[in-house]
Design a binder for these strands. Sequence first.
DNA 1: GCGCTATATGTACGTTCGTACACAAGATGA
DNA 2: TCATCTTGTGTACGAACGTACATATAGCGC
Lengths: 187, 187
Amino acid sequence: MSSNPSAIRRPDPDRKQRIINAALDVIVEYGVQGTTHRRVAKAAGVPLGSMTYHFNGMDDLLHLAFTQVAHASSAAFVGRLAEAGNREEAIQALVDIIAGNIWSTPRTLLLSYELYAFAARKPELAAIMRDWMQASREALGRFFDPLTCRALDALVEGMGIHGSVAPARLDRGQIEDIIRRLCAPCG
Amino acid sequence: MSSNPSAIRRPDPDRKQRIINAALDVIVEYGVQGTTHRRVAKAAGVPLGSMTYHFNGMDDLLHLAFTQVAHASSAAFVGRLAEAGNREEAIQALVDIIAGNIWSTPRTLLLSYELYAFAARKPELAAIMRDWMQASREALGRFFDPLTCRALDALVEGMGIHGSVAPARLDRGQIEDIIRRLCAPCG
DNA sequence: GCGCTATATGTACGTTCGTACACAAGATGA
DNA sequence: TCATCTTGTGTACGAACGTACATATAGCGC
């Protein structure tokens, strides 16, 4: 009874990444402190022992998972903005980011809240968030002056949050109106 | 051994409120899912049995605690804005709210993140957040048109968050500049 | 084939958790 | 004074937790 012959080990090189993805699913459902080794293992379809083998405790796993969230969010924002070739197209890109589903999906927003709270307690993750914000500002910096970049960045953040709570979302025309007010002095 | 004669009961009418305040301290330190009956009891200086006596489970306690957070935040925002008698004073009030310590203290921000995440999982708290946002917009509505109210509200939110992460905070002049761009069309 | 190492897994241990519940004591009315 | 109700408290129990660790198998040089 001390060994289970049905437990055949299979090589699985993507396992670590799969566990990280499963951890994000668990975080969305149960929150950071509700994310346990056992729940993640079940969600990823791996045995409990894989947790201690691949990760050096829950903090290690959470760190990797949130780093991935920050990178993905940053890439989505910067990527959409990179398609713009001039200020007009940049404004359209911002409207897309705020109104569309590029950034403001419920899952992404919830993960952002959890990330903010987690980073408030772990200084090393705050550094990652700073890098992310700086990447966003540099992408905006191709078209707008620094103060406008900060204002636009904050607006994207705030409208994403409020849009998920408000009963009626703004339409693209209204969003564009507000964005144009903010960058009025630069053109 | 089955009864402890040193456990003298003292009447304590404010106990329930003290427990709620202690729960907020625990949430700040450990997060929502890390908030346990035992930790709150220790923080409030009450026996474990008081938890089940005063509250109908952790969800009940969290609900009351976050409702208090929402009301306090709303009152701080609306209260500062109520001091304004015209649009110019309203703009100065918004600068105070963003730049000063009225709203953007680390503790308040962290509680906001936890509240957002909690509300994303509990629909009845989302309703409370809607009321809070509506109260903010009505306070702004004394001076600005509805679309501008939404934009200003989102800007306050976003700048509060980014200000706590960014290495350098904006000064009052820059904040005022941005606010004036947003409400340019109304005066 | 045959050790050897890296990879992988099941289980056990001590801790902490929410909650139930028997019980103690001040308060109250007769 | 005494029965009764409200308020308050200590403890016990089953469940879930993180982690350590003995064990097992695949890959591989020889």
